[in-house]
């Protein structure tokens, strides 16, 4: 394996782990449900995206062909993450969960 590929894998892995961790810290730390919703979308998009790119680079430098299944995982997550975030926000608004103090504006109640 060439040195450049190894550096690329290391950087991609650490970026992915970092953003996954940041998303989880946000989930644990932020004050109300609506701001916690921001954590998973970020962990999905950047974190898993970087880890999967590391996997693609790793397996293609080993001469096993370019990994297509990995790309399918990322595309699927990118399509589904907004849908699940949206439906969870709708459920929270339907249950009347209050946003944290200091939030300007207000959720609809339809």
């Amino acid at each position: 394996m060439s040195t450049i590929a190894e550096y690329a894998i290391v950087i991609l892995l650490l970026t992915g782990g970092f953003f996954t961790l940041v998303g989880a810290i946000g989930l644990a730390r932020l004050p109300d449900f609506y701001s916690r919703l921001h954590g998973p979308t970020k962990a999905t998009t950047v974190g898993i995206g970087s880890i999967v790119m590391a996997s693609v680079v790793f397996f293609s430098t080993r001469g096993e062909g370019i990994g297509i299944s990995e790309v399918l995982i990322v595309v699927f997550l990118f399509i589904t993450a907004p849908v699940s975030a949206n439906i969870m926000a709708k459920a929270a608004m339907h249950m009347g969960i209050d946003p944290a103090k200091g939030t300007r504006g207000h959720p609809w109640d339809q």
């Binding site: 989880a24 449900f33 998973p40 898993i48 996997s55 995982i73 459920a91 929270a92 249950m95």
Partner: peptide, 25 residues
């Protein structure tokens, strides 16, 4: 609240995907 738990489960399965890919590497 219940939506918080659903959100935590959602994030948990996404992390599980990441762990499986890391295991594969």
């Amino acid at each position: 609240d219940a939506p918080d738990r659903v959100l935590a489960l959602d994030t948990l399965y996404i992390n599980a995907i990441g762990l499986i890919i890391l295991l594969g590497i």
